[in-house]
Simulated assay, not measured.
Amino acid sequence: MIAVQHAVDPLSVPSDAPEHCPGTESELAGKTEACAGCANQDICASGQTKGPDPALPFVRERMSNVKRKVLVLSGKGGVGKSTFTAQLGWAFSADDSVQTGIMDVDICGPSIPTILGIASEQVHASSSGWSPVYVQDNLGVMSVGFMLPSSKDAIMWRGPKKNGLISQFLKDVDWGDLDYLLVDTPPGTSDEHLSIVQYLKESGIDGAVVITTPQEVALQDVRREIDFCRKVGIRVLGVVENMSGFVCPSCKTESQIFKPSTGGAKRMAAEMGVDYLGAVPLDPRIGKSADYGVSFLDEYPDSPASAAYMDIIDKIKQILGE
């Protein structure tokens, strides 16, 4: 088992870095009270740590075997982003000839292992790097959730340590040849997002799928996420409206839970000039499937939500040119 406190790039954050290390890229590097006594204080203060990240060549080499790299984003938490990532992974890997990987960079809230039914697994290291945990032969996963002693353990890291772990996920994980690498991100536009863009910029990001729910309080944050994508040069593949109405499992009748008071995702997508991929209704069995770590698409293929998922996934494939 890999101890989480050592799962950082020593070139980004030294293993003996102080708890409140400002990070080597900060203007305060080596100059704060927290830096007192750190072995690297003089180097950081001199600015010698700035420059091209030494991990970039290794990331490029690893990512050269990955055909498509897709981010799943949302400015708002709780909109079903990780659940959508899992369904996307299961749908892609339904074709035995397609190799799919899911990288969970939601460092403080890693839910992908639970949703995929592999929460009890551990990461193993070999001479070729870290081995992903496999849900099935053609669906591998990497998440910090595999590295925690307990699912109750909180991860209290500042940006530099998060960035170091993401760097290791990209340069040290032996993904092999992948058709798709899906990156599940936390809410917002912060450290994890900037790190992914920085490390994958040269090897290319094929695009981002942005997830939202119908209500305006979610759409506000999603507009910011789309703006983030534009500022860092990420193509927005489209917007998905999740939890769009409620499907009764018995009578299959749909009713609105989150009312789209400002027109919902479809109107927002039109206003922002991005594609609207579709809407997924809220089926309570989606949550049940996530808790039990099984594919909702396989368990409930007759649900309107499954039909919506497959329609959206087909559109994503078409946009990617598959």
Rank of each mutant, 00 (worst) to 15 (best):
V144T: 12
G204W: 02
L148E: 13
P214N: 13
Q122E: 12
A119H: 02
V197L: 04
K288P: 06
A3Y: 06
S255G: 02
R224Y: 05
A17S: 10
C35W: 00
D96R: 06
G207S: 07
G23V: 05
P14R: 02
S128A: 06
K288Q: 14
L178Q: 08
Y300T: 13
D291I: 00
Q256L: 04
C38L: 02
L200E: 11
Q168F: 03
P54M: 10
G278V: 09
G273N: 13
S111C: 11
R68A: 01
Y292W: 09
D291K: 00
P22E: 06
D104C: 08
G278W: 07
E299I: 02
K201C: 05
K161L: 12
V197E: 07
A39H: 04
T213P: 05
I313E: 09
A290F: 00
Y300D: 15
L219D: 03
V232I: 14
D137M: 08
S190H: 11
D172S: 11
P57L: 07
P260Q: 09
Q318I: 09
V232N: 11
S150F: 06
N40K: 06
H6C: 08
E225V: 00
D283G: 08
T100L: 01
T262P: 02
I43W: 01
S306K: 02
E322T: 07
M103H: 05
I102E: 13
L277E: 10
V70M: 07
D137S: 15
V217L: 15
M63Y: 04
K162P: 05
I115F: 09
V222H: 00
S15F: 12
A270G: 15
Y300A: 10
V141N: 02
P110S: 05
K161W: 08
E27F: 01
L237W: 04
A29F: 10
A307T: 12
Q168K: 15
K69E: 08
V217R: 12
S93A: 12
G293R: 01
F296R: 01
S150I: 11
F84W: 06
M243F: 10
K171E: 14
M243I: 10
I102H: 08
A279T: 11
Q5V: 09
D95Q: 07
K81Y: 05
M272Q: 15
V274C: 09
V141Y: 03
A265N: 00
I118A: 05
G263P: 01
T49Q: 13
V70C: 07
I118G: 00
A39F: 04
W90E: 07
D96W: 00
E216N: 14
P149D: 15
L56H: 06
V209Y: 01
V4G: 10
V232S: 14
H20W: 08
M63Q: 09
G89P: 02
I211C: 09
E19Y: 06
S289T: 13
